[in-house]
Every structure is written in C-alpha cells, then in structure tokens.
Computed example of a mutant assay.
Amino acid sequence: MKEFINENRLKLLDIIEKKYSLDIDGGLQTEIPALDFYFSHKETEFNTTAYEPSLCIILQGSKAIDFGKDPLGYNIEKYLLSAANLFAKVKILDATKEEPYVSLRIKFRLEDIYEVIKNLDNKKFQLSKKTEKGLFFDELNERLYDPVVRLVKLLEQPKEEIEFLSPMIIKEILFILIKDESGYFLNKFAMEGTISNKIVKVVSQIKDNFNEKLNVKELARLIDMSESSLYENFKTITSMSPIQFQKKIRLEEAKLMLLNQNIEASEVAFAVGYESPSQFSREYSRMYGMSPKAHAEYLRNQESI
C-alpha cells in the first residue's frame, strides 16, 4: 500500500510542477474551485491557520498541528479532515528550497456530505451523544488516494471536462470517506439534530456576523441548547470559546482588509467590530506577532518574492 501511495504521490507532484511549478510560496487556487494547493520552502514556527470543511493531504514534507492539548503531527501517510470552520496553530516541518512542503486541500460543504449519507444505510452509525473535536486524522489508503489522483489529473484536461467531471469525483471521495473510518466523524457533523451539527450552525452564525456583538444567549436559543452546554460543546469542537472564536474571525478578516485595501488600521478596527482601535492593535499584535501596519507590509513583501 505504501508503495502505491508513494508512486501516486510522486505523480501528483510531477503534475503540479509541470502545470504550476513548485517554486511558489503560499496558497494556489486551481481551476477546480474545490481544490487548492499550499507550498512552503522553509520550516515555520506555529502560526494560526483557518480551516474550513475539507480533506487535506500532504504530498511532501510534514506538519504539526496544535489543536487543544498536545500538538499532533501528520505527514504523507495520513490525511486530515475538518468538519467545520476552525482555527488551529500549525507548524510546517521538513521543508527546504530543494524539497518544499506541498499539500492539497479539497473543500466541501456538510450539505454535500448529507446528500451522500442520506442515500446510504445509516444503521451502522450508532452516534453517541459525546461531542468530539472538529479535526480527524487517519491513515491514507489506496481506495481514497485513487480518486484524489484522478481529480488532480483533471487539471491537465480542457475546462469543459473539468467542470463536468470534478463534482462527480469529489462526490466519490466523500462516499469513500463516509464508508471508511471517518464516516462516523462526518455523520455526527452532517446529520441534523446532532450536537455537533448544532455547534456547526453556531460556528456559521458567528462567522457570518463576526462584526456584530456576540449574544451567546440568543445563539443557545437558536439551537435549543443551554448556554453552559453551548460553551462546553463549542470548546470541545473548536478548542476555543465562542468569544475567542469570534476574535479569531475578526482578526483574520482584518488581515485580509489590510492586505487588499488601502485603509487605515483604525478604520479596519471599527469595520470588523472593535470599539477601540488600541484594543484591536494589541490583540492583532498578540495573534500575528507584529502591528497591523507592519504585518500588512510584511505580507505584501512576501507576495512579491
């Protein structure tokens, strides 16, 4: 099995290098909307990274993820599943100029998972009431790797073929994940009425209204749950409280505004929901290690390299 995975991993690296080059640093969106790549030519310290519902596979290098208690590592032999919009601290390992870190991500919606699940026999999923973390790791296998390879190979084909076939292959990938060990994990988050699904709805609500004042009581009422239960389950799934999560969303949005718009930091502070520019600057510096203005300049310089 390892031989099959390694052989196909090298094929994927070859396709990516021929089409895009491996000299890129940072993210790369492909012609398939659900598929993107990430590259790094150096190891990094732990940095906050935003995840969304997706399947992540490393093609070269390795990574450590701090999500809760102890950092977890994964490499070319494992895959990662995120079932919600989450934040984790990530450290890239085993990355050099000669052999950069390369990973791929296939994004999906929980609605896509549900569309597959509802056509399957759900009886095998005896869903416990216990809430679990929103990230799941497991060993890669031939059955999962095969459609992933076919999806990336589609990038060599005409646009018409990409548009027609990519949704089918992604649905096949979800089907395989649901039939695999990860099926239990995905089912808990996708099925209406489960605690995990309710928390995902709260996550989406906070994300969509990040610049408004957080009303936990109203959020709890929305999902028919007590405030204490909401706090407890939210923290289990996302590794942070609702207030901490909103703060992360606000600062991520602020980073994008500073990078892409010619706008003062104080204006950004108010736009993302802060009442005090000085508090915004302190919290931004705490998260990114430098002031909003300095960080924006740093990111622009990185893009031009």
Score class of each variant (00 low, 15 high):
Leu93Arg: 14
Tyr74Ile: 02
Val152Arg: 00
Tyr51Trp: 13
Leu135His: 11
Asn47Asp: 12
Lys118Arg: 14
Lys124Arg: 15
Val152Phe: 00
Phe164Lys: 15
Glu43Ile: 01
Thr48Leu: 13
Ile65Tyr: 00
Lys118Glu: 07
Asp180His: 05
Asp121Asn: 14
Tyr101Arg: 13
Leu120His: 03
Glu45Trp: 06
Ala64Met: 06
Gly68Gln: 01
Glu132Thr: 12
Asn47Ala: 13
Pro147Ile: 10
Pro147Ala: 11
Ile57Gly: 05
Gly61His: 04
Met168Leu: 14
Ile170Tyr: 09
Ala95Gln: 05
Val152Leu: 00
Ser128Asp: 13
Asn75Trp: 03
Phe136Ser: 12
Ile113Gln: 05
Leu86Pro: 13
Lys171Trp: 02
Val102Gly: 02
Ile57Val: 15
Ile170Ser: 04
Leu72Ala: 09
Arg109Gly: 05
Leu120Gln: 08
Ile57Asn: 03
Lys107Met: 02
Phe125Arg: 09
Lys130Arg: 15
Ser128Thr: 15
Asn85His: 13
Leu151Ile: 04
Asn122Gln: 12
Phe136Tyr: 15
Asp138Ile: 05
Cys56His: 04
Gly68Lys: 01
Lys78Leu: 09
Glu163Pro: 06
Pro53Val: 11
Lys78Gln: 14
Pro100Trp: 05
Pro147Trp: 10
Glu115Trp: 10
Lys124Val: 14
Leu154Pro: 08
Arg143Thr: 04
Asp121Ala: 12
Ser103Met: 00
Pro100Met: 09
Leu93Glu: 11
Glu52Val: 15
Ala84Arg: 06
Leu177Gln: 10
Phe87Ile: 03
Lys171Leu: 07
Leu144Met: 12
Tyr114Leu: 15
Glu163Ser: 14
Ala64Pro: 00
Pro100Ala: 12
Gln60His: 02
Thr48Pro: 08
Pro158Gln: 14
Lys179Ser: 05
Lys63Met: 07
Leu155Met: 15
Glu163Cys: 12
Ile178Asp: 02
Leu177Trp: 05
Phe67Glu: 03
Lys69Trp: 04
Asn47Met: 15
Ile76Lys: 08
Ile173Phe: 08
Asn47Trp: 09
Asn141Thr: 10
Pro71Lys: 01
Asp94Ser: 14
Leu59Met: 03
Leu177Ser: 11
Lys159Leu: 14
Lys124Glu: 12
Asn85Pro: 07
Asp180Gly: 04
Leu154Glu: 09
Phe46His: 06
Ile65Phe: 00
Leu120Ala: 06
Ile92Val: 14
Pro158Ala: 15
Pro100Glu: 07
Ala64Thr: 00
Ala83Ser: 15
Ser62Met: 01
Val149Leu: 13
Ser166Thr: 11
Phe46Tyr: 15
Glu111Tyr: 04
Gly68Val: 01
Leu59Trp: 00
Val149Phe: 08
Gly61Met: 02
Tyr101His: 13
Lys171Cys: 09
Asp138Gly: 12
